[in-house]
Amino acid sequence: MAVFVAKRLATMILMLLLVATMIFLMFRTMPGDPTASMVDPSIPREARQALLERYGLHESLWTQYRIFMADLVRLDFGSSYFYNRPVLEVIGERLPATLILMFAAMLFAYALGVLGGAWMAWNRGTWREAAGITFSLIFRSAPTFWVGLMAVMLFAVTLGWFPAQGMRTTGYTGDTFREVFVSLDFLRHLILPAAVAGLYFLATPLLIMRNSMLEVMSEDYIEMARAKGLREIRILYKHAARNALLPVVTAGALFIGAAIGGQVLIEVVFSWPGLGREIVQAVTRSDYPLAQGIFIIISALVMSMNLAADIVYGLLDPRITYH
């Protein structure tokens, strides 16, 4: 197991270097003079040259790449043009907000999806099943920003149950992690965006769980469990659900990549100060070091989630052995 994780981590690092290379090239091979977007072309020539040199943009592509990669392996992502602070620092501030929102949404979607999917399989062919499918598909197909805005209108503006945006009440400034994230005020801010993101994610675990449950329910060991005189609820959740969970975990790992896109929209709609919103702003501000850094961090995030899913899979299924 330890060997397996070590091997996977090594692969992950290799893949990240590859991703970094691609991101580096992506920014430098964009049409037109790449330096134009990085340094305002209207400023005087000498000043422009000085700036280019300061950022190292006058070097050849190859030299730039070597420096970029050498910094990267030292976990140095450079400085943000906009904030004038190390990229890593900015990311470090935004990352917890994104992670917490994402995990809250995933937790919501997976808890509801797994239990609900099992329940739908149980109610096969009834109006309840149809209602569950319709419900989850509505939130999957509706544009997330629209659902988000509607939720804000209903629950924040009209009903006033939850704050409309941000992570903390305006005017509040906390410095340490504890001050910012461990409070009721934060929780109240979290509920609405997490629910909206969760509802968007919901269809995947719910429908896969339902299908895989239906498949598992016709297995012989389910009939055997009945023949043993077990209660239906125990058969459903102990024998069937445990097996039906396997494809849900796999799908979840694949889904995480797609979920990032939804996350960006949610953060923008709810003004959530996370990486998703930051990346949009970094790109519009032509803050390339920051944008690159966030891209790489998000890639690392997706890869670690995949690794986590593989480990969970092995814990659920004794037939899996790690090599």
Binding site: E219, D220, Y221, E223, M224, A225, A227, H239, R242, N243, L316, D317, P318, R319
Partner: peptide, 14 residues
């Protein structure tokens, strides 16, 4: 008690 026709698959794999 039942000994099922497909005892190969009568045990839950997990």
């Amino acid at each position: 008690a039942l000994i099922s026709q497909s005892a190969m698959n009568a045990l839950n794999p997990v």
